[in-house]
Amino acid sequence: MKIISCMKPVPDPASRLIINETKTWIKDQDLTFVASEADNYALEEGLRLKEKHGGEVIVLSMGGEEAARVLRSGLAMGADRAIHLLDPKFKGADEFAAAATLAKAIEKDGGADLVLAGVQSDDLGTGMTGTMMAEFLGWVHATVVVGVEAAAGGKSLKARRELEGGINETVELPAPAVLTIQFGINQPRYASLKGIMAAKKKNFKVWTAADLGLADDAVGKAGAMYEVKEILIPEKKSKVEILGGTAEEATAALVEKLRKEAKVI
């Protein structure tokens, strides 16, 4: 099976995020970037499928040096090679432009049997890019996947999807397909020292917009379907009553409120 796993660089979850001067994004110059958490689950699932069925796993990312870093971590985990989409023109892409660019890269690499992506990213978090990519490629897809099985040498896939209310749905889909992988599907492996050393010798392609045959107005900010007007911290509409004092005082006050005011106990 040829499996391409997408990895999005996002600020390390421990970072303190500050909105930039133009209020159109966060100040990202001094942040450390890591792979979006769900993308690690996706890559782990890809590595397990390869271990079972053979083939290769390619990691794919778009961005500057932060994307290269994320791709190296993917190679260290066990991916066979990496594709880095690097071009200043890619900056400012929305989900639409990102999906179009990633889809073109997948086509340029000769397609795949399976493309994996995390269910949603840790930054925008809308869960659109994987599904949009499937539409650009003209492939079938499944979202929120919590289990994958491949049959017929990777030509047929079974995916278990997690629906609301604890319901799971198992679907069958023909390859090539795009799956978006849910958190918790597996336990992503850590890169070993051997893996980190081996990663340095692996094939690492770098492609620009021109390499992909994409026009300037189809990528990055120019290719986006929306413009960011403002990023802001949401106003608190809450009416929460904070009970202070020591733990004993606060809990005593709480029980009093629950009995006399809310009347729920």
């Binding site: 925008l124 413009e227 960011v228 990023i231 802001l232 949401p234």
Partner: peptide, 8 residues
């Protein structure tokens, strides 16, 4: 955070 967007 919230993001205000204008569609194109």
């Amino acid at each position: 955070m919230n993001m205000k967007t204008a569609v194109r």
